[in-house]
Amino acid sequence: MNKVLDLAEQLGAALLQQCWIATTAESCTGGGVSMAITEIAGSSAWFDRAFVTYSNEAKQQMINVQAETLVEHGAVSEPVVTEMAKGALDHSNANISVAISGIAGPGGGTALKPVGTVCFAWADKTGWLYTETCLFDGDRNAVREQAIEKSLSGMLQRLQTLA
């Protein structure tokens, strides 16, 4: 967990430097990204809120993911995390967001979306948006840990391009 905490610390410093605030929209990580962020003392200065939208219904109710998007693409898809990231920004005081949805396992995988498939979207108030899908190795905990690292590093990379 040291790498995650190091990333969270670096993210906090970058957010403070930019005078930005972060938010998260999490599914398969179950709040792990926001937990890592709030492990850092003083994170209330640069972290607004987290949306743990594990069910499709929660995604729709809390951050305006469209039912049609879920039906057409499935919860683990770049179109869904795109809507999650934008919805988190719309329902928070944040300048930057990350959204995560994936299949951590041990079950739930398919031939097209095997266990370890995790989709990410990062968005910010300037209109910037980036999506990526990864296939992580390992058990449920390992997949979630890698997803948390990727989430934090993606936000950090965006902030470093603005500095």
Score class of each variant (00 low, 15 high):
Y54K: 01
E57T: 13
E57A: 14
K59A: 03
Q60I: 12
Q60E: 14
M62Q: 14
M62H: 10
I63H: 04
N64W: 03
V65A: 01
Q66Y: 03
A67D: 13
E68A: 14
T69F: 02
V71M: 12
E72Q: 15
H73L: 01
H73T: 04
A75V: 02
V76G: 02
E78R: 02
P79S: 00
T82E: 13
M84Y: 06
A85P: 09
G87M: 04
G87A: 10
L89G: 08
D90P: 06
H91Q: 15
S92K: 07
S92D: 11
V98A: 04
V98E: 06
A99M: 09
I100Y: 02
S101G: 11
G102D: 00
I103F: 00
A104R: 00
P106D: 09
G107W: 07
G108M: 07
G109Q: 03
G109M: 04
L112C: 11
L112K: 14
K113R: 13
P114N: 05
V115W: 04
G116T: 05
C119A: 15
C119D: 05
C119M: 10
A123V: 11
D124E: 14
D124H: 09
D124Y: 11
D124I: 09
D124T: 09
D124R: 01
K125R: 15
T126Q: 13
G127F: 10
L129T: 11
T131W: 03
C134N: 12
C134S: 12
L135G: 02
F136P: 05
F136R: 01
G138D: 05
D139L: 05
N141K: 12
A142S: 15
R144K: 15
R144Q: 10
E145T: 12
K150N: 04
